[in-house]
Design a protein around this nucleic acid. Structure first.
Lengths: 205, 205
DNA sequence: CTTGTTGTTTACCAAACAGTCAACTATCGG
DNA sequence: CCGATAGTTGACTGTTTGGTAAACAACAAG
C-alpha cells in the first residue's frame, strides 16, 4: 500500500502552532512547511490550500486534544457547578503553562482564528462555528444539571451557556492581548455571579 | 506652508474600514492606497509602515468616534445602571446597523485587531491596550456610582468592570463569528446578572 | 516672481509568495 | 523481484508585496 509518512500530522501540528502563536493571515505556507520539515510539493499533496489545512487542523485539535479533556472535566461524576468551575480553572492553568513556555498567553486558537477570518473564508468559519458550538454544549448540559439540582436559577440554559461562554472567550482574548492572567483568575467567580449560582462549592482563597 | 491635502485622513479611514471588515494581516498597503485613492508614494510620505498607520487609525477612531459617544452614554446625568444598559444596548444597535449595510456583523475593530496582532507588533498592542483601558474605565466609574447608590453590591469595581468588559467583547466577537445578533440581545441582562444588579431600571420586553 | 515647504506621481527593485510539475523513491502485496 | 500505490523532492513560473527615489506640482509668504 505504498509509502508511509507522518508528514500530514507534522503539517497539522506546525500549522496550529504557528497560527496560534501568531495569526492566520501572517502565517505563510512556506513557514508551515519549514516548521514541519516538509517541502511545499508535499504540502500540496496533502492539502489544497492553507484554508483547507486550517480546517483540518481545527478538527484534529478538537478530536485529539479538546474532546478528551472536555469529557473528563464535564464528567457527570462531577457536581454540575464543579464541572464549570473545573473548566474555567483549567483554562487558567493551561494558559499559565503556555505563558511559562512561550512567554506569552495565547488564548483560544479556535476563537481567535474565527474572529480573524470569519468574513473571508466560509469553510473555516463553518468549522469554527461547529467547534464553538461543541464547546458551549458542554456548558449548557452542566447548567441544565445545575438547574435540576437547584444550584442555578431556572431559565433558558442555552442562553445562560452562551453568556458564560462569551465571558469565557472574552476573558481569554483579554488575557492574550494584555499577556496577563488576571482576567482568567477572576473568571470562575464572575461566571458564578453570572449564573446567580447558590455556592454549594467552596471557593478557595 | 506648502500644499494642502486630506489624503492622510482618507488613508486612515480606508485602513480602518478594510481592517475592520477583513483583518489586519490580509489587508495590504496597496489595497489601502487603492481604497483611499492615494498612490503608494504618498502613503510612505505620511506613514512609516502599515503598523504605524494602524496605530494612528486606532487613535483617530477613539478621538473622533468613540470618545464623544462614550461621553454621551456614560453621562453622569444618567443613572449608573442606565449608563451601562445604554452602552450595551448601543452595541447591539450599532452592530445591527452595520449588519444591514455590510451584510455582516463586524464587532469591535480594536479588540479584533488586538487579538490578532498582539504577539507580533508591540506598538499596536500598546495602542490597543490603551484604548481598551479607556473603554473599561467608563464601566468602572459607572459601577462605582452604582455601588454608591446601592444598586450594585460592594466589591472591587475594577474587577467587576473587567468582567463586564470581557463579557461585552466576548459577545461582540461571537456575534461577528456567527454573524448573528443573538449574543448581543442577551448581553444587557447577562451583564446585570453578572453585576448582581438590583434592577432599579425597567427591563423592556 | 521667487523660493522654500508640502504633498504627488511614476517607475522601479528585490524579496516573498502561492501554486505547478515531472522525476524520483520507498514500501507493500503478490 | 515486480509493479502498483503512496509519498517526496527540487526546480520552476508568474504574481503580489513592501519599500525607494527622483522628478514634479501646488501653494504660501516674502
Amino acid at each position: 500500500m505504498g509509502r508511509k509518512s507522518d508528514a500530514k500530522q507534522r503539517l497539522l501540528d506546525a500549522a496550529l502552532d504557528l497560527i496560534w502563536e501568531n495569526s492566520y493571515g501572517v502565517v505563510t505556507i512556506d513557514a508551515i512547511c519549514e516548521k514541519a520539515g516538509v517541502k511545499k510539493g508535499s504540502f500540496y499533496y496533502f492539502f489544497e490550500s492553507k484554508a483547507d489545512l486550517a480546517v483540518a487542523a481545527l478538527e484534529e485539535e478538537w478530536q485529539a486534544e479538546m474532546k478528551p479533556k472536555f469529557d473528563a472535566i464535564f464528567s457527570v461524576s462531577n457536581p454540575p457547578l464543579e464541572r464549570i468551575r473545573l473548566f474555567l480553572q483549567s483554562a487558567h492553568d493551561c494558559q499559565a503553562e503556555i505563558q511559562k513556555e512561550h512567554g506569552q498567553i495565547l488564548g483560544c486558537p479556535c476563537f481567535s482564528l474565527g474572529s480573524e477570518v470569519c468574513t473571508q473564508n466560509e469553510p473555516i468559519r463553518e468549522k469554527v462555528r461547529e467547534t464553538l458550538n461543541r464547546f458551549s454544549r458542554y456548558l449548557e448540559s452542566a447548567i441544565r444539571d445545575a438547574q435540576a439540582e437547584g444550584s442555578v436559577a431556572a431559565g433558558d440554559a442555552n442562553v445562560k451557556a452562551r453568556a458564560v461562554y462569551a465571558l469565557y472567550e472574552g476573558s481569554l482574548a483579554q488575557a492574550r492581548i494584555h499577556n496577563d492572567l488576571a482576567p482568567l483568575r477572576i473568571l470562575p467567580d464572575a461566571a458564578m455571579d453570572l449564573l446567580g449560582a447558590t455556592t454549594t462549592t467552596a471557593r478557595p482563597d
